[in-house]
Nucleic acid binder design. Sequence first.
DNA 1: GCTCATTGACTATCTTTGACCTTCATTATA
DNA 2: TATAATGAAGGTCAAAGATAGTCAATGAGC
Lengths: 157, 157
Amino acid sequence: MDNQNISDLIETYLKQILERNEKIEIRRAEMADQFHCVPSQINYVIKTRFTIPKGYVVESKRGGGGYIRIIKIKLSNDTDILSEMENLVGDRVSQDDAFAIIQQLYENEVLSKREGNLILSVLSKQILQMDLIYDEEQLRARLLQAFLERLGYEEAE
Amino acid sequence: MDNQNISDLIETYLKQILERNEKIEIRRAEMADQFHCVPSQINYVIKTRFTIPKGYVVESKRGGGGYIRIIKIKLSNDTDILSEMENLVGDRVSQDDAFAIIQQLYENEVLSKREGNLILSVLSKQILQMDLIYDEEQLRARLLQAFLERLGYEEAE
DNA sequence: GCTCATTGACTATCTTTGACCTTCATTATA
DNA sequence: TATAATGAAGGTCAAAGATAGTCAATGAGC
């Protein structure tokens, strides 16, 4: 409930702003000051919470007048979304990224909540990390690709 | 009810809170302190008393700001047919049998057509029979079991 | 003797921190 | 004016810290 760590606080703060704005531009040192943490923690937050599968693009510039810019990606029609996600998945995908992708599909109403949960139930580490005989991330990618392809058919009908 | 073992006390304590709340979030070490036991006993209690058939799902996170979250769920009305199917699946299942099982669930209105097709898309020989390194039927069973378990409940409102 | 409960050593995962590196703009200097 | 020095950002990475998970040995109560 409120055993929030600093990274979560920073994440929440930024996402709050991004709900009202297409993008946000920050100065790393300032952020770090504001949240009483070291600058590299800002990088950590960005790297773990503002990834492309989660729907964000990040640009930055060093030197005088440097900045970090976080942009919320807006996806267009369902077909585009699906093929975009297929690209993201590729032939290996982590649990985090897979979950983020399903979340995106849900938010864009490509999937119902129930469908999303069904898919997720099978992509979890717990299920796929069985024996070390096969590559977990590769298998997850194969399954997720199959789901995405199927959703593409649905779309076409 | 008042067997004085610690595990029962912890269970009672948590369930008392869950009667008033949809979910509860604890810190394992804190709980352990509070009940004067070792941290892993909390895991034991959760594993034996907060299972899905008993109406709970558990999520957790490690590291700084870590937590264990217990969520009350609503069990579906179809648990009978679902557990029957789980028995049928066992730990290995052929494509044909898996398809027949999904068909059954569809006919019994446990699944929509779309949900059934989504599930099937991932249980096919084509998808699972990739490398011959692992046992295809075993993997299929694992995936199908995960689906069946997930179909057994919904999040309460 | 069985089953369930308790413990603790070891493991896995996530966060925080800091030392060191790279890039860019501005200013000083030959 | 071209270039070198300086300072001001942001980037990387690995170690240390903070939690939770697993598992097998041991204990307690039928």
